[in-house]
Amino acid sequence: MSELTPGFADPVLGAQSCFRAILEAMSRPGRLQRVAGIDQPPAPLGVAAAATMLTLADADTPVWTDAGRAAEDWLRFHAGCPLVASPAEAAFLLATGRMPALATLAQGSEEEPHRSATLIVEVRTLAETVGWKLTGPGIETEHRLQVAGLPADFLRQWAANRRGFPRGVDVVLTAGPWLAALPRTTRIEEA
């Protein structure tokens, strides 16, 4: 535990400003937001992924992650969240390797579609003027988003996720200090 790096330099304002970035990202799917406030996130987490977890996860939210021992210790210490082995039981999932399939995660019910998982995926790169064409709530005409580091069948999984609306998983993509969100309402077309 002695090697644990600190969490937010300012826990109250750090979480507030990170939450605003996530809220803005979720409200305007595909737009990139820059997050700060954590100097040394535990490898392999970037600043945005680490800050997102500290902003949203706590003792009430089971978390699944593949990020390894250092990140697990860091999350347990700073967020106090229980870590679970089964992706289906998690409220938040933090994937740094191959992401778990969307269909295996908590989808919520027709009456309680909000009881669904949020998947945070650390990807290689994010760019917003090229790539996929996003449409749907939060988008005036169309947003562009290019992501490197998702499974090849992501768009097929995403289309199935959308068909389940109002049930479904919401996704936050992170790359270093950057994040973008894909709420379940977003339609994605390949460029």
Partner: peptide, 12 residues
């Protein structure tokens, strides 16, 4: 509340 807000935005 923040978690609830994000789900609310995702399910307009």
């Amino acid at each position: 509340i923040r978690r609830a807000l994000l789900k609310a935005v995702a399910i307009p």
